[in-house]
Design a protein around this nucleic acid. Structure first.
Length: 184
DNA sequence: AGGATGATATCC
DNA sequence: GATATCATCCTC
């Protein structure tokens, strides 16, 4: 198996981690198969001061893991039917995370990986993965075997119009030209 | 453009 | 206990 990204990778500035996650591989061992997708689109949620972040409501049972140490999965159900996956960033207590929005299928994945809900469906991720440590053997993020040069595009985040001035901030990042972006 | 569908936060 | 609100997706 490959080597998961270290705790220190996640224990950094969230916008930096978000951009560094582009091109990395998300790996999940499930039902005897290794599902692998390349991360091509993400969004950064900076902490309680970020009005678009779930942690802006304070520590609750749902946001607890997002306030915890970095490198853990924050998975939640949205609109009653779709799961979304984040990776927690920055030191314990910060309340920041990066939402994974789209993958490029690499192995044992359907072609339907554009968008956070579809991403989780294709990877077999649900609320049972809430709080899962990504420094693990069966569910983790790792470097791509071959480093490639990518151009990163910055856009406002999707679906956060309620967040006032935070709605317009350029905290959505994706790989320029990649065909698996959820929206232009 | 509108509906599905249930957890969650926030109010009584 | 009731209700409004969702970091979405599918169908029309």
């Amino acid at each position: 198996m490959k080597i998961p990204l270290s705790r220190d990778f996640y224990n950094r500035d969230t916008t930096q981690v978000a951009q560094d996650l582009l091109g990395k591989l998300l790996v999940h061992h499930i039902d005897g198969a290794e599902r692998v997708g390349k991360i091509v689109e993400v969004e950064a949620y900076l902490g309680p001061h970020d009005l678009a972040a779930h942690t802006s409501k304070g520590i609750t049972p749902r946001t607890q893991v997002m306030y915890g140490p970095p490198g853990f999965a924050y998975v939640y159900l949205i609109y009653g039917m779709h799961h979304c996956m984040n990776v927690v960033t920055e030191p314990d207590g910060t309340g920041a995370a990066v939402l994974l929005r789209a993958l490029e299928p690499i192995a044992n994945l359907s072609d339907n990986t554009k968008g956070p809900g579809r991403l989780c469906k294709a990877m077999g991720i649900d609320r049972s993965h809430y709080g899962h440590d990504l420094i693990s053997e069966n569910f983790y993020i790792t470097d791509a075997p071959e480093a490639e040069t990518i151009e990163i595009v910055q856009r406002p985040r999707i679906g956060v119009d309620y967040a006032g001035e935070w709605a317009g901030k350029l905290l959505r990042f994706y790989i320029e030209g990649n065909p698996y972006i959820s929206r232009k």
